[in-house]
């Protein structure tokens, strides 16, 4: 990963690549930057049906608030509607989902990678079929039993469902990752008298973090962005951020509330920025060690 051969490129090629990257980053980031800018305007400007340049100049923002920018959206979302509560719930859901998913997934993935029997293939294929099940159908099937057993509405229910839905992907990622950790490592530990679980705990856990962190990032994104499960299985006081944002939009959009949603979306992206900056090295080394060679 040092200054490698691939980095030594001719100048024109370098220019083409950088040019392409700049175009891509503009394309990728433009809607978000537009949203960031617009979150400080009023709805009539940001969602103008008359002229899109209103979103830039903000004539209604001026007449309604007196300034070119307004923090009303943020105030409405965070102060009036207590968006931080949803943020707290999201934190609980995300941390639990990632932890449980990875615990289940590492155990299962390790076993699948080390078993060597044919049934492993079938377990993986069945997991794949499980992943093909549309989430809408799954969630609507949960409703009646969950209501019946009084499980509906609580955070743990949504957490375990997200974990289960996420297991197939986690298993696939982690299996291919564990396949790349040399078998000699844990087998020599077992020759030294460790049980299988001790070998896993003492030898494998210390070297598995890169792959686990990458898989964790995808679990994190799934739990963070999920709408299908959280919107249907959580009651109002346990709402996470995305259903809360949906409730700002409401069934019929109420004036001003749309901007709460826009501001909330911008706010919800900030922690992801910190996360990506913090974990970017691990993301890379993680996938490196895992799925890549799978």
């Amino acid at each position: 990963m040092t200054a490698n051969v691939a980095d030594r490129r001719s100048l024109p090629l370098q220019a083409v690549l950088v040019g392409f990257l700049i175009v891509w980053i503009i394309v990728a980031a433009f809607p978000f930057l537009w949203t960031l800018w617009g979150s400080f305007k009023v709805e009539g400007d940001f969602f103008s049906k008359a002229d899109w340049t209103n979103a830039l100049t903000g004539p209604m923002t001026r007449t309604e608030t007196g300034g070119a920018f307004t923090g009303r959206g943020y105030q409405g979302a965070w102060v009036t509607n207590e968006f931080w509560r949803a943020g707290l719930n999201t934190l609980i859901v995300v941390v639990s989902v990632v932890t449980i998913s990875l615990t289940f997934g590492t155990l299962g993935g390790y076993a699948l990678a080390r078993s060597g029997y044919r049934y492993v293939f079938w377990v993986l294929i069945v997991a794949l079929v499980f992943r093909a099940m549309p989430h809408v159908t799954l969630v609507s099937g949960y409703l009646l039993p969950f209501f019946q057993w009084n499980l509906w509405g609580h955070l743990p229910t949504a957490i375990i469902v997200l974990v289960a839905i996420n297991q197939p992907f986690t298993l696939w990622m982690l299996t291919s990752f564990f396949q790349n950790i040399p078998k000699d490592l844990d087998e020599s530990a077992m020759v030294d008298g460790c049980s299988r679980f001790q070998a896993f705990r003492l030898v494998i856990i210390p070297v598995m973090w890169p792959g686990v962190i990458t898989t964790g990032l995808f679990s994190f994104l799934l739990a963070y962005n999920d709408f299908a499960v959280t919107a249907m299985l959580l009651n109002q006081e346990n709402q996470t951020m995305v259903p809360k944002i949906a409730s700002f939009l409401g069934t019929t959009q109420t004036k001003g509330n749309v901007m709460f949603a826009v501001s909330a979306v911008v706010s919800a992206t900030a922690p992801l920025f910190l996360l990506v900056m913090f974990f970017q090295r691990q993301i890379v080394s993680g996938l490196t060690a895992g799925a890549v060679k799978g």
Partner: peptide, 29 residues
Amino acid sequence: LAVNAIPRFLRGPAIFFSLLPMIVTPLVG
């Protein structure tokens, strides 16, 4: 390929901006 070709210190922000389409909730995006 392109991100791999730019100086190391720019890669973090480049990764973040490239990830944006995936991480902004589709609901509002």
